[in-house]
């Protein structure tokens, strides 16, 4: 298995919310990718956005600016 690293995980209520997040991050050149929701997190949508922890401020700002339908933000070892 891969060595675990600390990640910022963003969860969503719907798949549409996850797709909007991916699109917004790509447009803003924000790092990260969609992955299956790890079991440590309870989330509605089966996919989540995983990004380096240092991108938290930028992503939080993006979520507010783009009115993204986010369920929660977590720091997780993945």
């Amino acid at each position: 298995m891969r060595e675990k690293q600390k990640k910022l995980v963003v969860t969503f209520r719907t798949t549409a919310g996850a797709m909007a997040m991916e699109e917004a991050c790509r447009s803003a050149a924000a790092p990260g990718r969609l992955i299956p929701v790890p079991r440590a997190i309870t989330a509605g949508c089966g996919m989540c956005w995983a990004a380096p922890p240092e991108s938290r401020a930028a992503i939080e700002e993006l979520v507010v600016r783009e009115h993204l339908d986010v369920d929660g933000l977590y720091d997780v070892l993945l």
């Binding site: 798949t15 991916e22 969609l34 992955i35 299956p36 949508c45 089966g46 996919m47």
Partner: peptide, 10 residues
């Protein structure tokens, strides 16, 4: 769609 995060689903 919405049933996984592999490239085909995405």
């Amino acid at each position: 769609s919405g049933r996984g995060t592999h490239e085909e689903s995405l």
